[in-house]
Amino acid sequence: MTKIMNKLFVVTAAASASLLTGCVPAGVYQPPQAPQTLDYSREVNANFDATWSAITNVAGATFFNIKNFDKGSGLMTLEYDNMRGNVGAYVTCGEFVSTQAAYKNPHPDPKSAINYMTISDVQMHLSGRANVMARPVSDTKTNIQINSQYTLKITQKIGDRIESIGEWNFTSREPDTKTVDVAYKPTNVTCQSSNKLENDFLTEVTARLPTNITSTPVEQPLAPVSKKRTRK
């Protein structure tokens, strides 16, 4: 009787393990590709004053908070928090290539490794700061550069509890790698900027610059001078 019970226990355990394994997506993690360019600067056809005014307008009209600025040095420090909820568009943490779809899709990329980190409700929180530098090149040209710092926190909600999955700290140029579970397997996950923040900011500043139209003044013909007749 004991042998029969032991055999039943082994068979049940094996079946449970097989069922559990079948629920775990099988796949391969692929880290994000390095950005094609690390040059987050543009030279615009506008003088420094017009460029600085455009930078200030863009910073005030978007999700940024102006922390401090100094027009004399051309430096402005901006802070941001959660990007108005659209976090996924600004970061990439690589993909999990699998034939099985993720249970949750907090990241807009359906293959994102973030979507495979847990079956619980996932929340992404993004905060950081950006340094914007404007430098006059000439009387009609200005160089703008932006460098950003990111803090990405990913959490999961289990019942009434909020538990941390991982936290990454990276910049416009340098990614960050942390070990977290992807499809229930410890994985070195690299997160980095998608370059959207930097590119969008520079594009918006450029779009707000005045269009400089130089016109050559046209010389008007001189009116004929009438001579007074003198009486003889």
Rank of each mutant, 00 (worst) to 15 (best):
76 M>P: 06
89 A>H: 11
112 S>M: 09
126 L>M: 06
57 N>S: 14
80 Y>D: 01
123 Q>E: 14
140 T>L: 08
100 Q>M: 03
65 N>W: 03
153 K>Q: 15
142 T>Y: 14
111 K>L: 06
107 H>P: 00
132 V>Y: 04
81 D>V: 03
105 N>V: 00
71 K>M: 10
152 L>E: 12
56 T>W: 13
85 G>K: 07
121 D>L: 09
119 I>H: 15
57 N>A: 15
115 N>K: 04
124 M>P: 02
115 N>I: 01
64 F>H: 06
112 S>R: 07
114 I>T: 10
119 I>E: 15
153 K>F: 08
96 F>L: 02
138 S>A: 13
106 P>V: 08
99 T>Y: 08
95 E>F: 00
80 Y>V: 02
108 P>D: 13
141 K>R: 14
122 V>A: 10
82 N>C: 07
146 I>K: 07
132 V>D: 05
138 S>Y: 12
108 P>K: 12
98 S>K: 01
89 A>D: 12
118 T>A: 11
62 T>A: 10
69 F>A: 12
114 I>E: 13
80 Y>K: 01
95 E>K: 07
151 T>Y: 09
128 G>R: 04
53 S>R: 13
138 S>E: 12
86 N>L: 13
73 S>L: 04
147 N>L: 08
71 K>W: 06
128 G>A: 04
80 Y>P: 01
79 E>C: 02
120 S>G: 10
102 A>W: 05
62 T>D: 12
67 K>Q: 11
68 N>H: 04
124 M>C: 05
153 K>H: 11
109 D>K: 10
78 L>T: 00
115 N>V: 01
81 D>L: 06
105 N>K: 11
116 Y>Q: 06
58 V>W: 04
141 K>G: 11
